[in-house]
Amino acid sequence: MVDDEKIVSEDMGVQVEKNENMEMRSFGTVKRWATKRSLWMVHYCTGCGGIELAPLMTSRYDMERFGMHPMVTPRQSDVLLITGYVNIKTLKRIIRTYEQMPDPKYVIAFGSCPINGGPYWDSYATINHLDKYIPIDLYIAGCMPRPQSIVRAFEDLMDMIQDGTADGYMRYKKYYEPYKANQEKIFRKWW
Protein backbone atom coordinates (compact mmCIF):
# COMPACT_ATOMS: atom_id res chain seq x y z
CA MET A 1 0.00 0.00 0.00
CA VAL A 2 1.10 3.53 -0.63
CA ASP A 3 2.35 5.62 2.18
CA ASP A 4 0.44 8.84 1.67
CA GLU A 5 2.41 11.00 4.05
CA LYS A 6 5.80 11.11 2.39
CA ILE A 7 4.72 11.78 -1.16
CA VAL A 8 6.10 14.54 -3.27
CA SER A 9 3.99 17.65 -3.14
CA GLU A 10 1.51 17.67 -5.98
CA ASP A 11 1.99 21.31 -6.81
CA MET A 12 5.73 21.17 -7.05
CA GLY A 13 5.52 22.39 -10.64
CA VAL A 14 5.09 25.85 -9.13
CA GLN A 15 8.67 25.75 -8.01
CA VAL A 16 9.89 25.95 -11.57
CA GLU A 17 9.47 29.60 -12.33
CA LYS A 18 8.67 30.27 -15.93
CA ASN A 19 10.99 33.23 -16.28
CA GLU A 20 13.90 31.45 -14.73
CA ASN A 21 13.62 28.70 -17.18
CA MET A 22 16.36 29.51 -19.65
CA GLU A 23 15.94 26.29 -21.52
CA MET A 24 12.35 26.96 -22.26
CA ARG A 25 13.04 30.42 -23.61
CA SER A 26 15.73 29.18 -25.96
CA PHE A 27 13.10 26.88 -27.31
CA GLY A 28 11.95 29.28 -29.99
CA THR A 29 8.44 30.32 -30.83
CA VAL A 30 8.48 28.56 -34.18
CA LYS A 31 9.65 25.33 -32.64
CA ARG A 32 6.99 25.54 -29.99
CA TRP A 33 4.40 26.20 -32.65
CA ALA A 34 5.59 23.19 -34.63
CA THR A 35 5.53 21.07 -31.51
CA LYS A 36 2.03 22.03 -30.58
CA ARG A 37 0.67 21.57 -34.09
CA SER A 38 2.14 18.13 -34.44
CA LEU A 39 1.41 16.24 -31.29
CA TRP A 40 1.88 12.56 -31.78
CA MET A 41 0.54 10.54 -28.97
CA VAL A 42 1.03 7.11 -27.60
CA HIS A 43 -2.08 6.13 -25.71
CA TYR A 44 -1.80 3.80 -22.83
CA CYS A 45 -5.26 2.31 -22.73
CA THR A 46 -5.35 0.79 -19.30
CA GLY A 47 -8.96 1.05 -18.33
CA CYS A 48 -12.27 1.79 -19.94
CA GLY A 49 -11.05 5.08 -21.42
CA GLY A 50 -9.62 3.50 -24.54
CA ILE A 51 -13.05 3.23 -26.03
CA GLU A 52 -13.41 7.00 -26.01
CA LEU A 53 -10.46 7.35 -28.33
CA ALA A 54 -12.08 5.62 -31.26
CA PRO A 55 -14.58 8.42 -31.99
CA LEU A 56 -11.81 10.88 -31.32
CA MET A 57 -9.65 9.49 -34.08
CA THR A 58 -12.32 8.70 -36.61
CA SER A 59 -14.64 10.86 -38.59
CA ARG A 60 -16.85 12.09 -35.73
CA TYR A 61 -14.20 14.19 -33.97
CA ASP A 62 -11.13 13.64 -36.18
CA MET A 63 -8.18 14.72 -34.09
CA GLU A 64 -5.95 14.73 -37.17
CA ARG A 65 -7.38 18.19 -37.77
CA PHE A 66 -4.94 19.40 -35.14
CA GLY A 67 -2.07 17.46 -36.62
CA MET A 68 -2.42 14.82 -33.96
CA HIS A 69 -1.76 11.27 -34.81
CA PRO A 70 -1.71 8.06 -32.83
CA MET A 71 1.77 6.54 -32.70
CA VAL A 72 2.70 3.13 -31.51
CA THR A 73 6.16 3.63 -30.12
CA PRO A 74 7.26 6.05 -27.43
CA ARG A 75 10.32 7.00 -29.45
CA GLN A 76 8.16 8.80 -31.95
CA SER A 77 5.64 10.25 -29.55
CA ASP A 78 5.21 13.56 -27.80
CA VAL A 79 2.17 12.90 -25.66
CA LEU A 80 1.50 10.05 -23.32
CA LEU A 81 -2.20 9.61 -22.78
CA ILE A 82 -3.18 7.44 -19.84
CA THR A 83 -6.78 6.48 -20.15
CA GLY A 84 -7.95 4.91 -16.98
CA TYR A 85 -6.95 3.36 -13.69
CA VAL A 86 -3.30 2.52 -13.18
CA ASN A 87 -2.40 -0.51 -11.19
CA ILE A 88 1.04 -1.30 -9.94
CA LYS A 89 1.86 -3.64 -12.78
CA THR A 90 0.85 -1.22 -15.50
CA LEU A 91 2.55 1.64 -13.71
CA LYS A 92 5.86 -0.05 -14.35
CA ARG A 93 5.12 -0.07 -18.06
CA ILE A 94 3.93 3.50 -17.99
CA ILE A 95 7.12 4.70 -16.36
CA ARG A 96 9.21 2.71 -18.81
CA THR A 97 7.28 4.13 -21.74
CA TYR A 98 7.52 7.62 -20.34
CA GLU A 99 11.25 7.38 -19.85
CA GLN A 100 11.72 6.14 -23.40
CA MET A 101 9.99 9.16 -24.91
CA PRO A 102 12.34 11.87 -26.12
CA ASP A 103 12.01 15.41 -24.73
CA PRO A 104 9.84 17.42 -24.95
CA LYS A 105 7.13 15.08 -23.78
CA TYR A 106 3.78 15.63 -22.18
CA VAL A 107 1.48 13.48 -20.12
CA ILE A 108 -2.28 13.71 -20.03
CA ALA A 109 -4.14 11.80 -17.37
CA PHE A 110 -7.56 10.91 -18.50
CA GLY A 111 -10.57 10.30 -16.26
CA SER A 112 -10.82 10.28 -12.51
CA CYS A 113 -8.86 7.10 -11.88
CA PRO A 114 -5.35 8.53 -12.45
CA ILE A 115 -6.34 11.61 -10.46
CA ASN A 116 -7.53 10.05 -7.26
CA GLY A 117 -8.16 6.39 -7.84
CA GLY A 118 -11.77 6.75 -8.89
CA PRO A 119 -13.91 3.76 -8.07
CA TYR A 120 -10.79 1.75 -7.38
CA TRP A 121 -9.44 4.10 -4.75
CA ASP A 122 -9.29 1.40 -2.09
CA SER A 123 -7.96 -1.41 -4.22
CA TYR A 124 -4.76 -3.09 -3.09
CA ALA A 125 -3.47 -3.18 -6.67
CA THR A 126 -4.12 0.30 -7.99
CA ILE A 127 -2.47 3.58 -7.27
CA ASN A 128 -4.47 6.66 -6.47
CA HIS A 129 -2.28 9.58 -7.50
CA LEU A 130 -0.45 9.03 -10.73
CA ASP A 131 1.41 12.33 -10.41
CA LYS A 132 3.40 10.97 -7.53
CA TYR A 133 5.23 8.77 -9.99
CA ILE A 134 5.39 10.71 -13.22
CA PRO A 135 4.69 14.39 -13.84
CA ILE A 136 1.28 15.10 -15.32
CA ASP A 137 0.80 18.14 -17.48
CA LEU A 138 -2.92 18.02 -17.77
CA TYR A 139 -5.87 16.20 -16.23
CA ILE A 140 -9.16 15.49 -17.86
CA ALA A 141 -11.75 15.02 -15.19
CA GLY A 142 -14.82 12.85 -15.58
CA CYS A 143 -15.83 9.28 -15.59
CA MET A 144 -15.74 8.94 -18.53
CA PRO A 145 -14.78 12.22 -20.17
CA ARG A 146 -16.47 12.66 -23.51
CA PRO A 147 -14.40 13.09 -26.67
CA GLN A 148 -15.28 16.77 -26.65
CA SER A 149 -13.47 17.23 -23.39
CA ILE A 150 -10.46 15.37 -24.72
CA VAL A 151 -10.35 17.72 -27.68
CA ARG A 152 -10.65 20.59 -25.29
CA ALA A 153 -7.81 19.18 -23.23
CA PHE A 154 -5.58 18.98 -26.24
CA GLU A 155 -6.35 22.55 -27.10
CA ASP A 156 -5.36 23.50 -23.59
CA LEU A 157 -2.19 21.50 -23.89
CA MET A 158 -1.37 23.34 -27.08
CA ASP A 159 -1.80 26.64 -25.31
CA MET A 160 0.39 25.43 -22.49
CA ILE A 161 3.08 24.39 -24.93
CA GLN A 162 2.89 27.76 -26.61
CA ASP A 163 3.36 29.74 -23.40
CA GLY A 164 5.80 27.25 -21.94
CA THR A 165 3.86 26.02 -18.94
CA ALA A 166 3.80 22.40 -20.09
CA ASP A 167 7.07 21.57 -18.42
CA GLY A 168 6.39 18.22 -16.83
CA TYR A 169 9.41 16.59 -18.40
CA MET A 170 11.67 19.19 -16.84
CA ARG A 171 10.06 18.68 -13.48
CA TYR A 172 10.74 15.00 -13.86
CA LYS A 173 14.39 15.71 -14.43
CA LYS A 174 14.65 18.24 -11.65
CA TYR A 175 12.92 16.05 -9.09
CA TYR A 176 14.09 12.78 -10.43
CA GLU A 177 15.23 11.53 -7.01
CA PRO A 178 11.88 12.05 -5.22
CA TYR A 179 9.99 10.57 -8.17
CA LYS A 180 12.28 7.56 -8.15
CA ALA A 181 11.90 7.23 -4.40
CA ASN A 182 8.15 7.18 -4.78
CA GLN A 183 8.31 4.63 -7.52
CA GLU A 184 10.62 2.37 -5.61
CA LYS A 185 8.48 2.63 -2.55
CA ILE A 186 5.52 1.17 -4.34
CA PHE A 187 7.38 -1.43 -6.32
CA ARG A 188 9.69 -2.41 -3.44
CA LYS A 189 11.58 -4.76 -5.71
CA TRP A 190 12.03 -2.99 -9.05
CA TRP A 191 10.20 -5.10 -11.56
Binding site: R75, R96, W191
Partner: peptide, 12 residues
Protein backbone atom coordinates in the same frame (compact mmCIF):
# COMPACT_ATOMS: atom_id res chain seq x y z
CA UNK B 1 18.02 -3.42 -24.18
CA UNK B 2 16.48 0.03 -23.89
CA UNK B 3 14.14 -0.61 -26.77
CA UNK B 4 10.42 -0.35 -27.10
CA UNK B 5 8.86 -3.65 -26.19
CA UNK B 6 5.44 -2.51 -25.10
CA UNK B 7 6.87 -1.15 -21.88
CA UNK B 8 8.62 -4.35 -20.94
CA UNK B 9 12.06 -4.15 -19.36
CA UNK B 10 14.20 -6.93 -20.79
CA UNK B 11 17.05 -6.67 -18.30
CA UNK B 12 14.84 -8.26 -15.76
Amino acid sequence: TDTYMAGEVPEH
